[in-house]
Amino acid sequence: MNQLEQLESEARNDGIEIVDYSFNSPNIKGLYCDGTVGISTKLQTTAERLCVLAEELGHHHTSAGNILNMSSASNRNQEQKARIWSYNKLIDLQGFIDAFEHHCSNLYETATYLGVTEQFLVDTINAYMHKYGCYIKYMNYVIEFGFNSVNVIKQYN
């Protein structure tokens, strides 16, 4: 079972219905409302679908009410919480280490290895840099976060 199928299965187990939907606007990739996630039929890759589904499930777990109007600070905060939830769900610190150990050397290779889009990876890196600062020591590794970049260093004792 791939990562998308696992996430779809988790959603179904939580009572969430996932439907493919042709949104009128090409800017809308997904939408969560009352236990249903609508995913745009225009998404072209499994990675895109996975990232959108993760964010919409983030709304299920973290948001309340109608947050479509982004002029509200409260709505922007809820949007950010949903994105953080999706970043943590799809790429944890161990994911960066696994990509390093599999010799991924750039954003494209890392995103491909992790099954996400490059933009989702960059957004995750930037969110983790905001959360952890420029680096974090994790197990026997140092994970360095830069704007749109990540570097993993293995520590030897």
Rank of each mutant, 00 (worst) to 15 (best):
N88V: 04
T46V: 12
E109C: 02
S63Y: 08
R12S: 05
E56I: 09
I67H: 04
Q155N: 09
N157T: 08
M139F: 11
G58V: 04
L7G: 01
L4C: 05
H60R: 05
S72V: 04
R83I: 04
T112L: 10
L93F: 08
T36C: 15
V150N: 09
Y21S: 11
G133V: 08
M129C: 10
N13G: 02
K42G: 08
I153F: 13
F120Q: 07
Y32G: 13
N69A: 02
I91R: 09
L31R: 14
G95A: 04
Y156M: 11
Q44N: 12
Y87H: 15
I91C: 12
S9L: 06
V52M: 07
N2Y: 04
E17R: 14
N13A: 11
S149P: 03
I67L: 05
H61Y: 14
V150I: 10
L57D: 00
Y156P: 04
I67G: 05
L7K: 01
K137H: 13
E48Y: 01
N75Y: 05
H102Y: 11
Y135R: 13
H103N: 14
V116S: 02
M1Y: 02
Q44P: 03
N66Q: 05
G38F: 15
V52S: 05
I67F: 04
K29G: 15
I67K: 04
F96N: 00
Y108W: 06
F96I: 01
V19K: 15
K89R: 12
Q3V: 05
K81I: 02
N77H: 04
Q78I: 04
E144T: 09
K154E: 15
L90E: 10
V122R: 14
T112K: 14
L7T: 01
H130E: 14
C51G: 07
M70G: 02
Y108D: 09
N140W: 05
I125Q: 11
V116E: 03
A99M: 07
H102K: 13
N126G: 08
A111F: 12
C104Q: 09
I84K: 12
N106C: 00
I39N: 01
H59P: 07
I125T: 11
G115D: 02
Y138C: 09
N69E: 06
C33Y: 15
L4M: 03
A64C: 05
I153R: 12
I91H: 08
